[in-house]
Amino acid sequence: MFVTELRFEPFADTTITAAEKAINHYLEALRANGQILGREFAVAYNDGEFRVRLMQPEKTSLANRYNSPWVKSALKGLTDAKLLTPREKFIGQDINSEVSNTEPVSWQLLYTSYVHMCSPLRSGDNLLPIPLYQIPATFNGDHKRIIKWQSEWQACDELQMAAATKAEFAALDEISEVDSDLFRRGWDLRGRIEYLTKTPTYYYLYRVGGESLASEQARVCPKCGSQEWKLNEPLLDMFHFRCEPCRLISNLSWDHQ
């Protein structure tokens, strides 16, 4: 991922309130399309202009060709707020994050965790994140539903990892059970992505617990009951199960690895 600074300079008299609203609207539109990453953006005002530093998947993430209808509308909103089109200043590559996938993929999966800021769509060939704006818009012109699903999955993951309250168990069910609301929404998104990209797309089902390693290795696909989903060798050194018909991928319980 890469760090870029955007500068918003007024071209006529405006107000902090009008500028703040227009800039935040623009940033939210970029986030909904996967062009910038993260949830909070510190916008500073100094020397007559507004500045914000952003994390983006690629150097070219803010190119006009990737803009969604919402981003295009938000750019017009900047003009209405008397702000010039934002100027970009490339800062550099973030050394603490993953690089984005740049190769054609043979299959892909929805996979995230509470420590990941990048796209939840991953290449099945190397597990590198695929920028969402690189695929057709999933709903209503962008990828807001995928971003929302990712935020909810990460919130549940953080709760179950903290293991400090009763909420841990409800959160764990959401990311590990096929009858949960979060699974159903993610499963539908997975199908939509596969339809749009014409690429086999799988859903990662988190697994922890289980009585023993033997019982884990013998478990069946939780969606169709197939015993054929156990792999002879783990995929990407991480996934030990894959059900082709159900488009599910999972791991041996983290408690028995």
Rank of each mutant, 00 (worst) to 15 (best):
E216I: 06
V99E: 13
G191D: 14
A162Q: 08
G186H: 06
N33L: 00
Q217I: 07
T197E: 07
R51I: 07
T138E: 11
T102Q: 06
M55F: 13
L128Y: 11
S253P: 11
R192Q: 12
K148T: 14
T15A: 04
K82F: 01
Y26D: 01
E58W: 00
D80F: 07
D188A: 14
P245M: 05
A18T: 05
A137R: 09
N126Y: 07
N126M: 02
L132V: 05
E211T: 05
K89Y: 06
L109S: 12
R31C: 12
N126G: 13
S123A: 06
L78I: 01
E174I: 00
R53T: 15
A171V: 08
D255K: 05
P234I: 04
K166E: 14
K144F: 03
W107C: 02
G225R: 03
T138S: 12
E5P: 10
G38V: 10
Y203N: 06
R190Y: 03
N101S: 15
V208N: 15
H240N: 09
L83F: 06
T197N: 07
E211Q: 10
L6W: 06
R247W: 01
R242H: 01
E168C: 13
F90G: 11
Y45P: 01
G34Y: 10
T201P: 09
P86G: 07
H256K: 09
L182C: 07
G48V: 02
H240Y: 04
P10Y: 12
I135V: 13
F169R: 11
G38W: 13
L196C: 14
T201S: 14
N140H: 07
I249M: 06
A218K: 03
Q257E: 09
K198N: 14
A29T: 11
K21E: 13
H25V: 00
V220W: 02
T102L: 02
A29W: 13
I91C: 10
E216S: 05
L196V: 08
K72W: 00
A164G: 15
P234D: 12
Q227N: 03
D13A: 10
P69L: 00
T79Q: 13
F139H: 14
R207I: 08
F2W: 01
W149I: 09
E152D: 15
E244S: 08
D173T: 12
D237K: 15
V115R: 07
